[in-house]
Design a protein around this nucleic acid. Structure first.
Lengths: 205, 205
DNA sequence: GTCTATACATGGATAGAC
DNA sequence: GTCTATCCATGTATAGAC
């Protein structure tokens, strides 16, 4: 066992254990889902004993809730990135769609998180709502405000249009990556991006 | 035990048992997910013994695969219904969007099916692909062909546009119903339908 | 706080009678 | 083909030593 040298602060303290447990829990729950994850495997992945897990979290459900809430906080605003939405619609919307798609397609953790939340949304409805409140809602609001600000687009309902934009992108990743459709129903991201920006930008009548 | 009268054919035969088992399996898997469903509960829900379940299906995985394939076949073309896509775009697209949304919102079995497939899409990628091939792909193709046939819409990429349309609708149901967002982030279906038809129909420049 | 060892329940799968 | 009874592995959770 590695131990802190004399004079150094021992960092193997309780708070660190909690972090290690949450990290182990993340690896297991994201890969295997809630029911198929065992507390033994969580403890093993975290490098602590099972009793230690139970000393920090009431039970499996409590650990799961704590993990999901932590992940949702971490991902707050992450789909859009922190790019400010200012400038010409054609440029801004293209970049937005392109960035969001790239982020989601290349982020295996995001995809596993979606699988987990949707799969458990019947058993844990409040956790699905945590996701909605911390990720989906802010994204819709940000895009909605931008669309409303560009009056030349003449969009009658910016919020509904923001949902169309985000829904198209998220659902594309859902079918192509999460549900493994890209091999049997392929489509280049750019085609979706082109069609989306065309619909929104060229639609001012 | 109810038994067939003399002269009648005994319908409690093997084929019926298979049906009963699949029905019980459906109830359990759709509600609890794959891992949290036990073969005991399946047998109980089906009204047969566990050994009978194992005499018709190799193991839990085999039963699950058989069930998903059956459900996917049953739902072939179900989202769009069997409505023919002919007529004025404004009318056709509105009716299409309205019907699809109503179907999905009111069909708890569809929502449970989506939860299950997405939740298990890492463990059972081929089953997610069965869903794509039997439901998503035909829907995209049908709408894509319709959009291409209406040349007055001047849609540069009908297939990409079809994906935008379907993605918006499915994702709307995903956030509002499946992930329980309707209470914390409400929006009338009609606003989405209006915004969608406006984008697609009024966009011919 | 942390560990080892264990209690207790449940789950997947099968043996053997009918 | 179908049932009851059972085997054995695994899972959640805790008791008790340090």
């Amino acid at each position: 066992m590695v131990r802190a040298k004399v004079g150094e602060i021992d960092r193997s303290n309780s708070a660190d254990k909690v972090e290690k447990i949450l990290l182990g829990a993340m690896q297991q729950f994201l890969v295997h889902g809630y029911a198929a994850t065992s507390m033994d495997k969580v403890a093993e992945a975290a490098g602590v004993s099972k009793a230690t897990v139970y000393s920090h979290f009431q039970d499996k459900e409590g650990l799961f809730r704590a993990l999901i809430e932590k992940l949702a906080r971490k991902r707050f605003h992450s789909i859009l990135g922190t790019q400010g939405l200012v400038g010409e619609p054609y440029i801004v919307l293209r970049r937005l769609a392109k960035t969001a798609l790239e982020q989601m397609v290349n982020d295996q953790e995001y995809q596993a998180f979606e699988r987990l939340l949707i799969g458990e949304s019947a058993r844990f409805p409040e956790l699905a709502q945590v996701f909605i409140l911390s990720i989906a809602k802010p994204a819709i609001e940000t895009i909605s405000k931008y669309l409303a600000s560009r009056t030349e687009l003449k969009i009658p309902d910016p919020e509904a249009t923001a949902r169309i934009l985000i829904g198209s992108l998220v659902h594309f990743v859902m079918t192509q990556e999460i549900m493994h459709g890209k091999d049997i129903m392929p489509m280049e991201s750019d085609r979706l991006i082109d069609a989306l920006t065309h619909l929104i930008v060229n639609c001012a009548d």
